[in-house]
Amino acid sequence: MTGIAPHAGQVLSPLVRLERAGKRREVPMVECSIDGRAVRVEEGTTILAACRSLDVPEIPTLCFAETLRPVNVCRVCMVEVEGARVLVPSCSRPVEQGMVIHTRSERVMSARRMVLEFLASSVDLSTTPKAAEWIAEYEAEPARYGPPMPASDERDLALTGHHHEPSVEYAATVQQPVKVDNDLYVRDYAKCILCYKCVEACGPDHQNTFAIAIAGRGFDARVSTEFATPLPDSACVYCGNCIAVCPTGALMSKQEWDMRQAGAWKESEQSVTDTICPYCGVGCTLSLHVQDNQIVKATSPMENSVTMGNLCIKGRFGWRFVQPRKEPSS
């Protein structure tokens, strides 16, 4: 018997997908209709990709990333396919011949509204880009579930298989204290929507370090190290590839977090310049985010054929020798 991870789908560099030398073949085309318009796409194209090739109104996504195997868990990108019993996730569902797809039907709009309500009523979305915009667009009312449950430091200890009566006063939340246990990055799981991206990036899709996993079940499910041990005791190698894919700001470099705490983080004043990492010879593209002539963050472009958006600890954090680090207050 051979064991294949459930993640058996190949994740290849974009370049490989495009170029697969010597294996070029004609990809068959399929036709579908999206919001009443006929579309022809290559077989295997997802509904989301097909939609993005048109100028249909934006389909929101949270757990989707080009460089990760789709987990389709956030359910904010749902669309309606005629004949299907339930809505389908556009990020992972390939277009099939003859599909009739609606991206703004009443069912779709209602499901997106509810998903946004569910998230916004249980998670702190204050650093999730576009969250406020979507909540307004879909007229979500997260407040209707009641006042949010205050922070609890017991989420890491939740035991599976034990029922606890719900509160009738508060709406359950994932509010909890922020985890600051090392100098490089901060985990604020009160902002975590459990999109699985960090776990995929740390695990089988890129880094394969598996320092974190989804632990627990149901609403108690959480991103955790083994026995919720602090990061410095875990297998973490501080590549920060989890930060790179986090869609909500739950994971953030300590420097950015410190600067935000101090009110000194000014994204609109930052420039981003691509260069090459000064360490080993692999040649990873570093996008340097510079504020006030100080490098404040390093990322790598997702579409980069060398990195697919990933870096190691040296690329992600090791550039501070260039200029002495300024305290955020200064």
Partner: peptide, 28 residues
């Protein structure tokens, strides 16, 4: 409602949060 809240795997948002909201609402 409690059963579904406990037994939801927690993977997708509608079920993970929805089963909680359903149980809260029923208790109210």
């Amino acid at each position: 409602a409690g059963f579904f809240r406990d037994e939801s795997c927690g993977q997708c948002v509608p079920c993970r949060v929805g089963t909680v909201r359903q149980e809260e609402s029923l208790h109210r």
